[in-house]
């Protein structure tokens, strides 16, 4: 029941974030959605995820506020309102048809299959010595995933530095 309430709160925040005109308010609303997601992870018995989501959400908010603050934001007017809305709704309906078939195949909520995780849970403490099974998975059983994650993070930092750098652009701007 608490989970549904949190999810409704997130949906409300998302609708506000999408529909409000002011960009800074929109960013704050999406921050509320992210913090609600952190609470939802806590209810779903995933404390590691709740902590990570909290930290990442705050960093994300700082980055997004940096992008929106102190800009005179011209109001974006939508042209061809009917055509755009209709094509968007058509696409979403197309997506929902596939989602219907996928939802029928899912296991019931609260009864996971856990075909792979059974081995991790039974042999995790002996093989890795970690009390936290999630840490055992990301750092031991699937350590290559974490290596790839570090690579992606490094690439993203390089990309941000390359895009934001000012040196060498001065000649072009003049």
């Amino acid at each position: 029941m608490e989970l549904q309430l949190i999810l409704l709160f997130m949906i409300l925040g998302a609708v506000i974030a999408v529909e409000i005109e002011d960009l800074l308010s929109s960013v704050i609303a999406v921050g509320a959605v992210g913090l609600g997601l952190s609470l939802a992870f806590l209810i779903l018995k995933a404390p590691d995820l709740a902590i990570t989501q909290l930290v990442v959400e705050i960093l994300c908010l700082i980055i997004l506020i940096r992008a929106t603050i102190k800009k005179d934001l011209p109001l974006v007017k939508d042209g061809r309102w009917l055509f755009n809305t209709l094509s968007t709704l058509l696409f979403i309906a197309f997506f929902l048809i596939f989602a219907y078939f996928a939802l029928r195949e899912l296991p019931r909520f609260g009864y996971p299959l856990m075909r792979v995780a059974k081995g991790y849970i039974s042999s995790g403490p002996e093989k890795t010595g970690a009390a936290n099974i999630v840490a055992a998975i990301i750092l031991d059983f699937r350590a290559y995933d974490t290596l790839g994650e570090a690579t992606v993070l490094f690439t993203a930092v390089m990309g941000v530095l390359a895009v934001m750098r000012k040196i060498g652009r001065i000649k072009d701007e003049k």
Binding site: A46, D48, L49, T52, M114, V116, A117, Y120, I121, I133, V134, I137, I138, R142, D145, T146, E149
Partner: peptide, 9 residues
Amino acid sequence: PLPQALVLT
């Protein structure tokens, strides 16, 4: 625990 590990990444 497996989806939690993937989502953490």
